[in-house]
Amino acid sequence: MMTLAQSGFPEVMSQVTLAHYLFVSGAMFTIGLVGFLTRRNLIIMFLCTELMFQAAGIALVAFGRFHLDFTGQTFVIFVLTVAAAEAAMALALVVLLFRRRESLDAEAWREMRG
């Protein structure tokens, strides 16, 4: 199964190991987390959470290939579906807020304190 999956790959790709995928995935997750905590634009903040979801997706596919089972890939399909549902909801909420305040800045919404 291993040779079957790798046979069509160019020579360079066969050098890519699980660690490379995990590095990319970890970097994406970290960028997403840092972006979420530092940016104040609602759309950017949402994209950062999407980045974190997709980081998990990459890791899942890589792990699925590494363990040679399909659970990881199945998982990714569901993760994509949930991410799509969240995107729909996030954009609906952002549009709703924009209509009220004409601003996408999270700081503009500070009615509650204490």
Partner: peptide, 11 residues
Amino acid sequence: LGAAVFLYGFT
């Protein structure tokens, strides 16, 4: 954010 964190944990 919470969902992304525990999803990565599950992964």
